[in-house]
């Protein structure tokens, strides 16, 4: 039992009316996997939750001519089992496959993982590597921003309380991608370090590359110097090792209950190296 009132608008347009009616403030309820836990620990100042998990405007995974669109209320399980995501967004598919546990994957949504803005959020890390744009609506007014720009710090986003992420859009482009995480367990673990890499190669030459590292800074880390080092190269093991070292230099990890800063920094190197090798050295 949670001391909250859940309202369930039937359509997206009903969301804004419900938001206006909630005088004491509200939260959007999607998968509930963070919201309900926080509420149980007394971290819920809002007595109204607006359930957006069933809205069809936030559902669907579609493959357009130049875009892939994933509704923000799609679950991690739906995302990783989608053939379109597997084909066009390999790092995201892998992140969602390694996300939490099987029942949590059936609940947790892509939008929720993003809006909760944990630095160790696996799907959010992959979204950034996959160059996602977030489609956001406030009172029906729609804007598009780079998903990455939403993250300001641990659990802190650029979203205002009445900003609702409707969907994520990705350029449709053939590329390689991988997501690797290091947690305390092989499965069902919060990342100590994670790495998402997406790359396009032409004749073995890297022509686009995005590397993102999770759980090693207040927000998801982009090691730009490592990306730059490899761009335009036909990379071998040595170049990848150099890039991995730059990745380790780019992070600012902390000591906490899950790991130590020193370990995380070195693992940023090891995991980046493995991710880059998987993406750049594999023969396809």
């Amino acid at each position: 039992m949670i001391p909250v009132t859940v309202v369930q608008p039937k359509k997206l347009s009903g969301v804004w009316a419900a938001a206006r009616a909630a005088k004491g403030g509200f939260k959007f309820l999607a998968g509930g996997t963070d919201l309900v836990i926080n509420a149980r620990h007394g971290k819920n100042a809002h007595r109204v939750w607006i359930d957006i998990s069933g809205l069809k405007e936030l559902k669907g995974i579609t493959e357009g001519r130049d875009k892939i669109r994933i509704g923000a209320a799609e679950t991690a399980a739906a995302v990783c089992s989608s053939p379109a995501v597997r084909k066009w967004l390999p790092a995201l598919a892998q992140a969602c496959r390694h996300f939490a546990s099987p029942p949590l994957r059936n609940m947790a949504t892509l939008g929720g993982n993003c809006a909760n803005a944990s630095p160790s959020a696996d799907a959010a890390c992959a979204l950034c590597a996959e160059q996602a744009a977030a489609v956001i609506s406030r009172a029906g007014k729609i804007r598009r921003v780079a998903a990455e720009s939403l993250f300001l710090g641990p659990k802190h986003t650029a979203l205002s309380p009445d900003d609702l992420i409707l969907a994520f859009e990705f350029p449709r482009r053939a590329h390689r991608g991988v997501f690797i995480k290091l947690g305390a367990r092989e499965s069902f673990a919060i990342s100590k370090v994670s790495a998402a890499v997406a790359a396009e190669l032409r004749n073995g030459v890297v022509c686009s590359l995005s590397i993102r590292l999770g759980a090693v800074g207040p927000k998801i880390v982009r090691p730009e110097s490592a990306e730059k080092l490899l761009l335009g190269l036909r990379p071998g093991a040595a170049a990848i090792a150099d890039a991995a070292r730059l990745c380790a230099e780019a992070v600012s990890p902390i000591d906490d209950v899950r790991s130590t800063a020193a370990y995380r920094r070195d693992m940023a190197r090891v995991i980046s190296k493995r991710a880059l090798e998987a993406v750049l050295l594999k023969t396809s």
Partner: peptide, 11 residues
């Protein structure tokens, strides 16, 4: 399969 402890009944 879902975790019913985090799944609101109205959902």
């Amino acid at each position: 399969a879902v975790n019913s402890c985090l799944y609101m009944a109205v959902q």
